[in-house]
Structure formats: C-alpha cells, structure tokens
Amino acid sequence: MSFLVKRLGSAVSLLFGASIIVFLMLSPAFGDIAFNVLGENATPEQAAQLNTELGLDQPLIIQYTQWLLGALTGDLGTSLYSTQTVSAALAARMPVTVALVVLVTLLSGVLGFAIGVAAAIKRGWLDRALQFIATLGDALPAFIVALFLVTLFAIQLGIFPATGYTKFSTDPAAWARSMTLPVLALTVVAVAGVAQQVRSSMIAVLRQDFVRTLRSRGLSETRVVLGHVLRNASTTGLTSLAVQVVGILGGAVVIEQIFALPGLGSLAVQASGRSDVHVVLGTVTAYVVIVVVVNLLVDLAIAWLNPKVRLS
C-alpha cells in the first residue's frame, strides 16, 4: 500500500512540476495576449487596460496560483479567438486522442510482446526477419509511415478514407474505417520498440541460472518460457511500452493533422500557430495528465509482476 501512496505522490509532483514549467515557459506570451486580442494597431493604453481586466499585470506567482486554482476546479480559461472555454474544447477533442492512444498502446503491447517472445525463442531466420522489420519501424517517423499508408491504401487502392473523421456514435463502422490507418501508422512504429525490448530481455532472462533449474524440475518448456521467463522479462517490456506511450502521443499530433482527426493534437497545432496561450497551456496539461496516468498504470502492473519493486 505504501508503494501505491509513493507512486501517487510522485505522479502528483510530476503533474505539478510540469504545469509550473509550462506556465513559466509560456509567460512571455501572456504579455502579448492583449495585442493578439485587440490587433496589432491597438494603443499601449488599450492594451494595459485589457491586461488589468485579465489580471495579467499581477506578479507571475499570483497568476500561476489563480490558474492552478482554476485548473483544479476544471476552469482552464477561455480561447482568445472564440468564446469556447478551454475545458470545453479539451472535452470535445479528448475522446479522439484517447481512443487513438489506447488502441495503439494495446495493439502494440500485445503485438510487441508476441513478436519479442517469438524472436527470442525461435532465433534463426525468424528472429533476423523480425529484427529487420522492427528496426525499420523503429527508424521511420510515424508520419512517413502514415504518408506511405495513405498513398497505398487511400490513393492507390481506395480501401480507406484518406482524411476525415466520423464519430463512433454516428456510425461505428465509418469510425473504424477512419481510425484504421492512423492506428496502423502509429502501431507500426510503437510495436518495434516494444518488440526489441521484450526480445532482448527475454534472451537475458533465458540465460539466467534459474531457468536451467526450472527445466531440471521437469516443467514443460511452455511453462518455463511463458510462466517464468516472460514474467521476469515483462518488467522491462512494460517500461518500454510506457516510454512508447509518450512517443505515441507525440506522433499522434502529426498523424491527427494528416488524417484530419479532430483530436488534442490538431487543437494544439491550431492554437500554437496563432499563439492562443490558454488553449496551448490547457492541451499541454491534458497531455501530461494522460502520460502520468499511463505511467501510473504501468508502474502498478510492474509492481504486481515484480515483488522486489513492491517491497523495497
């Protein structure tokens, strides 16, 4: 239990730290908000008046405290270009990105483990082939893979739509069609990293002494490999999956743009392009929350699998 408390504590401290850093990083931009809203031709007096109205003439620490208090109650401010609140914008975009990330994480986790285990046990040509494909996936940025998939499946073959998004609630089949290529592009990249990691830690565990001892007890090879070796190797596999999740989120930003998916990424890109500070701050916070939650889940899974982590 103390382990759980410790993990939660570190998750909260990370969230808190990230919000401070992003806030400080964006602080110079707050000065320009008035001009962004009023236009380049506004007089300094007009700007100063708006700054006072928005509380931007206060010291940074007060501004941050106010933002943080607001954030804790779900109020992240309002977009400079529309009357939509940041929370509402995030709520509208979040499901697309979360669905994308969850699908890719599950898919690349399952495939990565399966491929990694197969490569570690079989070795030989299967191993080399998997290694090579994994290296390709590892080396290519997701958006290059996505462009390739679009060219092949959408333009040449016309199987999947190149762009556009249909809500799941509107038409599940169309939703699935609009998500297939984006999920595929991100999975190809993420699965490579997981498979490589699982393979090498499987091989490392297979070389450990206790594996020989387990075999000497007459246990079947399946039990030794799946029950013991995989369990010990899965810790590093899961850690690498957690690292991949951050990469998947980053890759999703560009992928959403390519496939015109209305997710957090396209919101962030749009807001960044026109310096819509509150929206940028809100989306970054949302991303950090997703990462921290995923890391927490992975840590719990690792602790469940590995008693040493739990007890120390």
Partner: peptide
C-alpha cells in the same frame, strides 16, 4: 528527468512555437 520524460516533445515544441 522523469518530468521531462513525461512531456511529449512535439507538444512542448508547439508551446514554444506559440511563444
């Protein structure tokens, strides 16, 4: 390091771009 690892790089760069 952990903090840094929790931030998707491109998202931070989008924020930097805004400033």
């Amino acid at each position: 390091t952990n903090l840094n690892m929790a931030l998707p790089g491109i998202v931070v760069l989008l924020a930097v771009r805004a400033v």
